[in-house]
Design a protein around this nucleic acid. Sequence first.
DNA 1: AAGTATCCATTTA
DNA 2: TAAATGGATACTT
Length: 167
Amino acid sequence: MIPLQTSDGLFLASFSERGLARLEFPTAGPAGADSAHVVPQTAAAVLRVPTAWIRAVRSAVACVLAGRDIEEMPPLDISAGTEFQQQVWEAMRTIPRGKTRSYGELASQVGRPRGAQAVGQACGANPIPLLIPCHRVLAAHGKLGGFSGGLDWKRRLLEREGTSFLF
DNA sequence: AAGTATCCATTTA
DNA sequence: TAAATGGATACTT
């Protein structure tokens, strides 16, 4: 895993041959990032991932954290997900900054009008938060719903994008 | 078979 | 008006 230092702590990025495969929130919570127990990827493995990818990921993460549009999107590898999950994740990528969609709307968008709860499950399984903007998915009437990285993260990200929500 | 980051209608305070 | 409840729902492990 490759550590990414940001204004909000130390994110962890994992790459496959196809692109960014996982992005993990700072383990010590939003405020502090302790790199003490982080096991860095071996130098040889790190050398295999193109520096352009790492640069793009760093930049893209910084953009989302700042509430701005992503300028350069790195290649993403979501092939680990099931067919349904990949459809949901692709659908989430079409939600523009500052806008939101409900779990039910997302379900309809992938042709499963009553699959809202399954969509919620797929959101929780999203391997690349921030770049696949699962924080822009709210419950039916503007309420927050949940978030794998903690609801405070979701609130903060939405506030920085200028989005309004309930609670 | 159980567990969800849901949704809607309905009840209750 | 808000919280609680129950049933229907689709997908994953």
